[in-house]
Amino acid sequence: MHHEDFVKITPLLAVALLVSTAIALWGIIDPEGLGAIAANIVAVQFNSRGWFIMLEASGLLFVAIYLSISRFGSIRLGPDDCEPEFSTPAWIAMLFAAGMRVGLLFYGVAEPLTHFDTLRRFFDDADAASFALFITYLNWGFHAWAIYGVVALVIAYFAFRRGRTVLLSAPLIDAIGDHRWTRALAWLFDLLSIIAIAVGLAGSLAMGVFQIQTGIAGLLDVENSSFLTAVVFIAMCIAFVIPLRRDLGDGMARLSNMAMLIALSLMVYLLVFGPTSYLMNAIVTGFGRYVFDVLPAGFATAEFMENDVIDWFQNWTLNYMIWWLAWSPFVGVFIARISRGRTIREFLIGVIAAPTLFSIFWFGVFGGLGFFDIFRLEGALAEINRNRLDATTFALLEHFPLDVLTRTATIIAAFLFVVTSVVSAGFTLAMIATGGDENPSPRIRTVWGAILGALGLAMIFIGDIKLVRSVIAVSAIAFVFIVPVLVICLLRSLKRENVK
């Protein structure tokens, strides 16, 4: 039922709106202040608790491995006799789509090359290149998807098998009991997931704007000015408010498929028209090193290294782990919804292996092209990358024929990725804030759209991608402590299951 004119103001909704609006206003009025405080908090947290964050990411990977090989693996996410809603190939395709974020478009070359710059000080160039790919895979691979996968598993298990809502408050009440303190903690979980989703998506909105404007400025040969920022930002706001105000049916899914298709075509194009065997060698070398060394690397912090290596480790690997935690309630709801009826075993194997393999392929192609430029050509890409991370992908495309077409396609795909994820975030936020209403009214969705826009504007004012990442990280720090509680809830409930 749609209740167009009636939105029940619950304490959760009121507090969530208040806190998000306050953060947005703070960022718009005093962006430097917000950025500086966030950077400070993140530095202190990463220095003191970096070990715990890595331990947790690895721990979640081991929980996932344990659950998929244990007797619990045969439990279905739904009643015992239910069938999966989607065919396995369709499901895997949707998992790829969940993993394909706008970040891949821009960090495909930039990230491996940045790691290479740090690592070549300690290793010879060949070793540094394969290590750089390894670190990129570590940041985007099994650990990332174990975080998403386990959170999604908790959501799916309690929603479909235990008949609760898809909110993070559900596991606590169901597995620990309905007490005053569990209800208070559960309420806090919902509030914190709203804030993490809102700030996280606003951050990715801002980063999308920066990246798209860099692309447009290069393509049209115009100045990369704040006027251009305003144009891109306003276009994006219009694009995501329309589908939030009125239902477009499967229109959003089609747009997101289109973005996915463009990105895939781009990868295939580069693989075919680029140095194909060189890239396949990069993929196979990177894959082997990753699969055999990934487990110990997940526990490695850079503590014994020099200060700037520690900084590098915190800015990338630790930051990514926090980032995956920040987005886990959002991506988790999506993955849970498409996975009803799967067994825990096939769920975990699908969710962790499929997107990781995709990332290995993706970064192998893009990173491989970056290394080809360094080792076989004049190495101009590395220089561009040192100056402007978000310009690297476009500089790479300029090396290839039809570059106007491919650069335009990249800009369109990036735009679609950002808009579709903001729309989906608007829905999810409205759903959580209304206590799990699967069909939140357009009015409340639009309110969340406006707040995402305001938060996005605040992030744009902050201006520096590094500071934007810090703000996202601060909003997600609570999840370092929420996720293990959810895992305990899941393990407690699984123990009550009657499995042979």
Partner: peptide, 30 residues
């Protein structure tokens, strides 16, 4: 010195939190 106190305090909170997780896992089923 100030930084060290913060560092120790933040880590003690993590240890306490791990204790909380163990307590949570040991609670009787509802």
């Amino acid at each position: 010195m100030n930084g060290e106190i913060t560092d120790t305090a933040l880590n003690l909170i993590v240890f306490a939190y791990v204790g909380f997780l163990i307590w949570l896992a040991q609670r009787p089923q509802p």
